Amino acid sequence: MSEKNQRYDVVVIGGGAAGLSGALALARARRSVLVIDAGSPRNAPASHVHNYLGREGTPPSELLAIGRAEAADYGAEVVRGEVVSAEKVADGFRVVREDGSVLRARRLLVTTGIVDELPAVEGLAERWGNEVLHCPYCHGWEVRDMPVGVLAASPMAVHQALLWRQWTDDVVLFRDGRPDFSDEEYERLAARGIAVVDGEVAALEVADDRLTGVRLAGGTVIPREAVVVQPRFTARSAVLEGLGLRPTELTVGEHVVGSYIESDAAGATAVPGVWVAGNVADPMGQVIGASAAGLKAASVINMDLVTDDTDRAVEARRAPFSAEAERQVTERVLGDRRHGLQETR
């Protein structure tokens, strides 16, 4: 294992919108920053980012490339790789990468995101981010007025169907063997013209690289051009768990829909010196929200470091006088002028 002497004010684990936004702000605050990017952003299958003011319709890869360049312009380092572990040590954190190299950090900002766990329906994963969707605010406009199917993969299915009805009047809800809906739910669905199809969903039908329908176990195919599914949002929390931070269940009403890492409003976790931002802390957040969370965490991290720097300076100032202490102060204040190498005015 290669033990390097590289030490950073902040190591950012995760190179998505949250991590790069935090890195940019910290680099502009003249902090030494390293971003370690695994290169597997959650929205990689999507063709465009939406609801990001000023960047509407930008491809995700392009947005991240812009972010990496902007952070690098201010001195942040961005490298590709995985972090296999992080541990708290006396002077901060010891971070181990997959190549065995070891880095030191005074603070950590973890923006590792989540994994979208999909139901085991043939063809579903292959069309994820294309015609298989979950967020109407991200993709509703793109499938407006199209035949949309909602797969009842969670107890939120009726809610999803009613929500997507805002973008199209052709919505079909596939019950897929889930418990029957209540009379009130059926009434609400009927009032909005949403049909309910019983029977198990076997697969998605695709032709010419386009979704064409939903095939039931009995062989019947219901023509659809988009399918909505509720994935389980699972936090990418391995590094954080190694630091003692366990995921918390994410619930909507009484229903568990995923997991996340708890933090305060600025992303500070229960482990001093560790912040989180983006989907690992807010699984339902969109890209613009993740970016804002990274900025907010960065500002608090910098203030925390300022406090630490000041505490250290006060401690040094109160230390007993020594020739070495005097030399360090003179060097810091006067620099080359101490040797008469720089003209004074």
Rank of each mutant, 00 (worst) to 15 (best):
S2G: 10
K4F: 12
A17N: 03
A17E: 06
L24G: 03
A29W: 09
D37F: 09
G54F: 11
P60M: 13
L63F: 13
L64C: 02
A71K: 07
G81T: 05
E82W: 15
V84P: 04
S85H: 11
A86G: 11
A86F: 11
V89A: 11
V95L: 07
S101Q: 12
D116E: 13
W128F: 04
R144M: 03
V148L: 09
A152R: 06
A153N: 03
M156S: 07
M156I: 01
V158E: 04
W164G: 10
Q166D: 12
T168A: 06
T168V: 03
D169I: 04
D169C: 05
L189S: 01
V197K: 00
G199I: 02
A203F: 05
L204F: 13
D209M: 04
D209C: 06
G213W: 14
A217E: 10
A217Q: 09
R224D: 02
A235D: 02
A238D: 13
V239P: 11
L240G: 12
L245C: 05
R246L: 04
E254V: 07
V257L: 08
G258H: 04
E262F: 05
E262K: 14
A268Y: 14
P272I: 01
V274Y: 13
W275Q: 06
P283Y: 00
P283H: 02
M284L: 13
Q286W: 05
V287S: 04
K296G: 02
A297D: 10
N302K: 09
A319C: 13
E324K: 15
E326Y: 15
Q328H: 11
V333G: 00
D336G: 04
H339T: 06
G340I: 08
Q342H: 11
